[in-house]
């Protein structure tokens, strides 16, 4: 997945930052929206997020298993809950939760994109969040060159 980030409070001509991630399961697709952080505990059945934005993209920093954050829902259900609440897409920072990629591997039916980011790409996104720097995010599929552009079957 390709993630473009443009800061809302900078001059329009400044170049967007480009980051990389991977789509979860079959969720590849296009999305854009304002970046908004969601605490991992805000994506539980009992909790409610009080966001008023319309077009937003949720970013969730997943914590390491040692921090004992109650796992109220499986990651896939957390992603679905965020999308149900209006997120145009969900970005999971999995830097500290290596098991997340495996958990979201074959997540079939996701109505909108769910992207996994880590390391420097994740750090840049979370850095913006921590400084409350309003940003707009564009997500799209990074087209690959064909693996087998020309093949014939010889028998």
């Amino acid at each position: 997945a390709m993630i473009k980030v443009s800061l809302l409070k900078q001059e329009p001509t400044s170049r967007p930052i480009t980051l990389e991630g991977v789509f979860a399961g079959g969720s590849a697709g296009y999305a854009e929206g304002k970046l908004m952080q969601s605490h991992p505990l805000s994506l539980c059945n009992t909790s409610e997020d009080d966001r008023q934005e319309t077009f937003f993209i949720s970013i969730v920093k997943l914590e390491s298993p040692e921090s004992k954050v109650p796992q109220c829902l499986p990651l896939l259900d957390k992603a679905r809950l965020a999308l149900q609440r209006g997120a145009q897409a969900v970005i999971f920072d999995i830097t500290d939760d290596p098991g997340a990629a495996q958990e979201l591997r074959d997540s079939g039916l996701l109505p909108r994109p769910v992207v996994l980011v880590k390391s420097s790409d994740a750090e840049q996104l979370m850095g913006l969040v921590n400084k409350n720097e309003e940003a707009k995010v564009f997500i799209d599929i990074m087209m690959e060159t064909q693996k087998w552009p020309h093949y014939d079957v010889g028998i």
């Binding site: 304002k34 970046l35 908004m36 952080q37 969601s38 605490h39 505990l41 805000s42 909790s47 997020d49 009080d50 966001r51 913006l128 969040v129 921590n130 409350n132 309003e134 940003a135």
Partner: peptide, 13 residues
């Protein structure tokens, strides 16, 4: 009680 506060784009416990 844990409360999730929102401050702009940030949300923290």
């Amino acid at each position: 009680f844990i409360h999730l506060e929102r401050d702009g784009m940030r949300q923290f416990g």
